[in-house]
């Protein structure tokens, strides 16, 4: 028993398992680069305001990190790209309508970035030690604090000029409040619905809408092996399966109809692609053991669909990932000690 316990104490390893600072910064900048297609599409659909909101987030995230580290006389690490990436991800998770002087709303992204970088990451000891994904905590904080402002979605225009776009509901919002029928009414037929979701011509957070651009970015990361398939695949397939089984509704009575849901709509709308490829895979806040990552992904997918179908919010990706972030150290712990259970086999 004593021997086992001792080994147990030895398995303290901190993610991310990085070898040098250079690796960290290369990863951070590459991930930022891979988000570029989706971001460009967001700016194309939602106009210059999307650019302003994101730029504000990036600048205030980097500045918060700089001031905090300066204030505590720590090493300044803004060049590693981690604060930049946090700001970029936070910006891409916000609605364009936040760039608005009347009502005055532009302090919202700044506060979000501060919460993300300082409270969620730096207070916990900086990069590598945060428990939660900083950008998602920033967004959750904003959603709870300004529930109205954070859910005003502007209509995509694809004109780049419109400064005063009309507001509308997101596909998931329509699905939750009014059902599939209304969704079809808005988008015409099913094919049209799928194409528009794929391209990203829909309301939503400014960087989450274009599925195809996100997939291109993710493919690049997978190809470069900066992320592995474990989390995205288990996340998305669990969500798709649950959407198919429990997502259907009888149009007349409104009761649940088993095996009649539309997984495609659920996979292409909301922030699930952005979440599964770019945020759940964050090295620091997901389990480092492969098996644990699959458990983590399944948990994310299941919680996402639980919240989408049964919960109080139309979109559940953010909360699902944050909830699984809570469990990540626990998953790592139990999976790792199971590996050390191999000691038992040696005994025979």
């Amino acid at each position: 028993m004593a021997a086992v316990k001792k080994e147990h104490e030895l398995i303290v390893s901190v993610s991310p398992h990085v070898k040098s600072e250079e690796t960290v910064s290369r990863i951070m900048w590459t991930v930022s680069l891979s988000l570029l297609p989706a971001f460009v599409m967001g700016v194309y659909f939602f106009g210059p305001r999307a650019l302003f909101v994101t730029a504000l987030c990036v600048v205030s995230a980097v500045l918060s990190e700089y001031l905090f580290q300066k204030g505590l006389k720590r090493k300044i690490t803004i060049n590693d790209g981690s604060a930049f990436l946090t700001g970029l991800l936070l910006g891409m998770n916000l609605p364009t309508s936040l760039w608005s002087f009347n009502p005055f709303m532009i302090h919202v992204p700044i506060i979000g970035s501060f919460i993300a970088v300082v409270i969620t990451k730096q207070l916990f000891g900086g990069i590598g030690f945060n428990i939660f994904n900083p950008a998602l905590i920033g967004r959750a904080f904003l959603l709870i604090t300004w529930p109205r402002a954070m859910t005003i979605w502007t209509e995509p225009t694809a004109a780049f000029v419109a400064l005063d776009a009309k507001t509308t509901a997101t596909p998931l919002g329509i699905l939750k409040e009014e059902g599939v029928g209304k969704l079809m009414e808005v988008f015409g037929d099913q094919l049209n619905l799928y194409t528009q979701l794929l391209v990203g011509y829909r309301a939503g957070s400014l960087g989450e809408t274009s599925a195809i651009a996100l997939i291109i970015g993710a493919a690049f990361l997978l190809y470069k092996r900066y992320i592995t398939w474990h989390i995205p695949v288990s996340f998305l397939s669990t969500a798709a399966a649950l959407a198919w089984v429990f997502g259907g509704k009888d149009l007349g009575t409104g009761k649940m109809l088993l095996f009649a849901g539309d997984p495609v709509v659920h996979l292409l709308s909301g922030g699930i692609l952005l979440g599964a490829f770019f945020m759940a895979t964050d090295y620091v806040t997901c389990p480092s053991v492969r098996k644990g990552q699959i458990v983590f992904g399944i948990g994310c997918g299941a919680l996402t669909m639980l919240i989408r179908l049964k919960g109080g919010y139309p979109e559940g990706v953010m909360f699902a990932i944050l909830l699984m972030n809570c469990f990540a150290p626990l998953i790592d712990r139990s999976m790792k000690s199971r590996v050390f259970g191999a000691v038992k086999e040696q005994k025979k």
Binding site: I111, I119, W146
Partner: peptide
């Protein structure tokens, strides 16, 4: 100003 402060999270913060 910051609605979250009256919620549990804000209390712990």
């Amino acid at each position: 100003p910051l609605l979250i402060m009256v919620l549990p999270t804000g209390g712990f913060f």
